[in-house]
Amino acid sequence: MAVRIVSYNILVPIYAEQVDYYDKCDPKYLKTDYRWNLIQNQFEREITKYENTVVCIQELCLSLLPKLEIFFRRMNYSLFHNLYGGEWNDYMGVGIAIPLSMQLDDISFVKIGDYIRSVCKKWENRMDQNQDVSCENTEEVPDPWEAAMDRSNTLICMKVTINKRPLCIGTYHMPCMYKYPDIMAIHASIVKDLVFKYASGCNVILAGDFNFEPTTACYSELTKTGFPAGSFPKSKVYEVSYWPNTEQILKSAYREKNGSEPAYTNYSCTFDQPVYCETLDYIFFAGQMTVDDVLNLPDRPSGRAYPDETNPSDHLLIAASFRF
């Protein structure tokens, strides 16, 4: 039995159409209609070429939702989504689309910030100490757990059955807070552990834009047994009733198949930032599965920045086929 997992951060139009922001890109390639034609062509290629294709989407948004709904309906797919952003980013969110022929057994939406809040109880006698620390440098986050619980990012997980084999599939868009790695470490660990808990022992696939590079502690936290030991973020404000399960880890499909992660999955150059070309997107998995193949990705980007004539997002679509 095989399943194809596709993951794509499609870039919300409200960002893409800021010509003064993506100032190294040709404006005609930033137009929503132009980008949408390329996006749907990429999705359709994966759906028609492979059996049991599941599509995970990040930066799904309100303005693109009707187009996505119509497209997936035409492809005989169901789209499940959660828009958790605000007006400023067109209510950006995530989604998973599956074939109508695929048996859907259960689906779960978890706002990770709410879960973090549920495992935190405020210390009544430590507030003064935290306030002193936060005043030392206004650029510092006063407490990583407090900042982590303020994020509205949502994890979507679903259980499906393919040829009588259960499978748990999840997608997540990690908060882009690379300046504060403790916050990302909290989200990464909790997302991993919640997916394993939800899966209840069945095979697991977790795909998305994780906003961390393969050399970071967050990547090791998800993929290495025993990590992070004593380095996991602590709180001066909260008593936290959570500790990461360091024995349950994930593998990366691209690393398993190719021996390394892609050269890059994100390529951008904006007016106020240097060129950025790194791997941020992954298809993680665990269980009794093997990686049949992965979508070939370029070794180096073309042009000055994405989006461009052939790349409708500043991220690359990634995909992997698994066999049970």
Rank of each mutant, 00 (worst) to 15 (best):
2 A>M: 05
8 Y>N: 11
9 N>I: 00
9 N>M: 03
11 L>F: 01
11 L>N: 06
12 V>L: 04
17 E>F: 05
18 Q>W: 02
21 Y>C: 03
26 D>K: 15
27 P>E: 11
28 K>Q: 14
30 L>G: 03
31 K>N: 12
34 Y>A: 00
35 R>H: 04
36 W>S: 15
36 W>C: 08
37 N>T: 07
38 L>I: 15
41 N>G: 05
42 Q>G: 02
44 E>C: 05
46 E>Q: 15
52 N>S: 05
52 N>D: 08
55 V>M: 03
60 L>W: 06
61 C>A: 05
65 L>Q: 05
72 F>T: 06
73 R>T: 13
73 R>C: 05
74 R>N: 15
77 Y>H: 09
78 S>K: 10
82 N>S: 08
83 L>I: 07
84 Y>A: 10
84 Y>V: 03
87 E>M: 06
91 Y>Q: 09
91 Y>M: 04
91 Y>H: 14
103 Q>L: 15
105 D>N: 15
107 I>F: 07
111 K>E: 13
112 I>V: 15
117 R>F: 08
118 S>E: 12
120 C>L: 05
123 W>H: 15
126 R>T: 12
127 M>Y: 11
127 M>V: 12
128 D>Y: 13
128 D>F: 15
128 D>R: 10
128 D>N: 08
131 Q>H: 12
132 D>R: 13
133 V>T: 02
137 N>Y: 10
138 T>W: 02
139 E>C: 08
143 D>Q: 09
145 W>F: 13
145 W>S: 02
146 E>G: 01
153 N>W: 10
157 C>G: 11
159 K>M: 13
159 K>Q: 14
162 I>E: 11
170 G>D: 07
172 Y>Q: 11
175 P>N: 06
176 C>D: 12
182 D>R: 10
182 D>T: 05
184 M>K: 10
186 I>G: 01
186 I>V: 12
190 I>F: 09
192 K>G: 14
198 Y>I: 10
201 G>R: 13
201 G>V: 02
203 N>V: 00
205 I>Q: 04
211 N>T: 05
214 P>I: 00
215 T>S: 10
217 A>L: 07
218 C>G: 00
224 K>D: 08
228 P>G: 02
232 F>E: 02
239 E>W: 06
239 E>L: 09
242 Y>E: 09
243 W>I: 01
248 Q>W: 11
249 I>L: 07
250 L>D: 01
253 A>K: 00
255 R>M: 11
257 K>Q: 06
258 N>D: 14
260 S>F: 11
260 S>G: 03
265 T>N: 08
268 S>T: 15
274 P>N: 13
275 V>H: 09
276 Y>S: 13
276 Y>Q: 07
276 Y>P: 00
276 Y>V: 15
277 C>V: 13
278 E>W: 04
279 T>K: 02
279 T>G: 09
282 Y>A: 09
283 I>G: 03
284 F>P: 00
284 F>S: 00
284 F>L: 10
296 N>T: 13
297 L>E: 08
300 R>P: 01
302 S>I: 08
302 S>E: 13
304 R>N: 04
305 A>S: 15
305 A>E: 08
307 P>G: 07
308 D>G: 05
311 N>I: 06
311 N>E: 13
314 D>T: 00
315 H>P: 01
317 L>D: 02
321 S>G: 10
323 R>K: 12
